[in-house]
Design a protein around this nucleic acid. Structure first.
Lengths: 243, 243
DNA sequence: CGAGGGTTTGACTTGAGTCAATTCTGGTGG
DNA sequence: CCACCAGAATTGACTCAAGTCAAACCCTCG
């Protein structure tokens, strides 16, 4: 078994046991490497020229802008995630995508993707699976915002992010490094930045999590899971589901 | 051109101009008709036996239950919508689906669906398109809850629902009939039932919409659209996008 | 005619937002 | 190496949107 090179392969590998041939195919998708500076939108609402990307390193967020000037961050993308898969289907992008850090990503043409799927149908299943999982994530985010109070919401969010990062080897149950500012958290969780700060302090004082200096540290992982009633099942995978 | 028989065909017809052959194929999907009584879950979280349905008549909602006993309704499904497409992919359903009214639906086996796609690839594109649109809807719902106050949220929601119903011929700019109770609205919009009532009263007193006795009546459609900054584009289709 | 959802309304409470000032941090250039 | 700056993080005081509790009311259906 060869090494799993990219976060993308790592992630798909959590769903499907990948053969060397499949790993090679995945690597070939990464030939069109591009770099994006932080803060400047990669894809913006209404943009016509469509392309999809696979995130190799760095973090981005996808958000919708409201007329009032506020915005709602729909999701964060981390290494291994697909970007703009949906904007390829629609004629124009329906939301903006902004790099939070400097980002490296591989541009993927629909053509190449389809060809890859042709050669290795199991990869299609894996990608579809990953996409469904992302959608499930948005749903969970919706529940978060709709029915949890700020403190549980934050706790749940930090755990979920941790679970995703663990899939690509960027987190453990101890914690992970996280470039998100409190403003970004606020826009994602539907809170004000001030309140985000207060909530983070409370969680810290409760001895659950510490989020400071770009690192999330789980001081009491199990306690935190219990506090926000985090469902361990839906993100935990013990290994490939398809052999 | 034959009549468009089912809401499902009507909806897909908004995306792709359907040939007689394709219409026939769609109709054949509807041979396994089933009826469900109101209030009893059709699909529940954790259920293993998977099947997908196409809604022929009636309304259902998909929701997630929280440990505290509250719930968040993620989306409502109306005639022509797919049910449980995702639960076919995952081993178990990740949310519950409950009929709001008595419901008629056609059971669809993955097998049949794939065969249909094989015979008419354009239908695959249309279904994928519809699925993407549904996902975009969830995103919009997320924005609604995260960043709009209760009044705009309600206004936006009622307009969106109207737009969807219009696609299958069940609404006009005057209004539509709607079996949702204020409790259901509350669970969908992340509000309390009491506040839903207050907000509906305000919208009525402002002369925007009247929601009473199971009917939504747009007293001032344009005013309402302006009030909640509804984006007409993303749901309005003048006709098939693929000829 | 009674029962049970569903709808309305009022009085009170509270979680989260706003405004505004202060401190911390990391980066930059002299 | 240090002074300075901008962007982040903190904190306190005050406000307000939305929740909670509780009591009517009102259809509709058996």
């Amino acid at each position: 078994m060869t090494a799993l090179h990219t976060p993308f392969a790592l992630k798909l590998g959590a769903f499907v046991a990948l053969s060397d041939m499949e790993l090679n195919l995945l690597n070939q998708l990464h030939n069109r490497r591009r770099t994006f500076p932080a803060r400047r939108d990669m894809i913006y609402e209404g943009q016509v020229e469509r392309s999809a990307y696979i995130l190799a390193s760095g973090w981005v967020c996808s958000y919708k802008l409201l007329p009032g000037g506020t915005r709602q961050i729909v999701d964060f993308q981390i290494p291994g995630d697909f970007l703009g898969l949906r904007s390829v289907l629609f004629r124009t992008a329906d939301h903006n995508i902004e790099p939070i850090t400097r980002v490296k990503a591989s541009e993927v043409h629909v053509q190449d993707l389809l060809e890859t799927f042709n050669s290795a149908p199991r990869l299609a299943a894996a990608v579809l699976w990953a996409a469904s999982r992302d959608e499930a994530m948005v749903v969970e985010h919706l529940v978060d915002i709709g029915r949890r109070d700020a403190k549980q919401r934050m706790a749940h969010f930090l755990l979920e992010l941790g679970a995703r990062l663990k899939l690509v080897g960027l987190a453990s149950n101890d914690g992970y490094s996280c470039p998100l500012t409190q403003y970004l958290l606020a826009d994602a969780l539907g809170l004000s930045a001030v309140h985000v700060n207060r909530v983070l302090r409370e969680l810290r004082e409760d001895g659950f999590v510490t989020f400071q200096l770009g690192r999330v540290i789980f001081d009491d992982f199990d306690g935190l899971v219990a506090f926000c009633e985090f469902d361990r099942n839906y993100l935990d995978h013990d290994g490939p589901l398809m052999k």
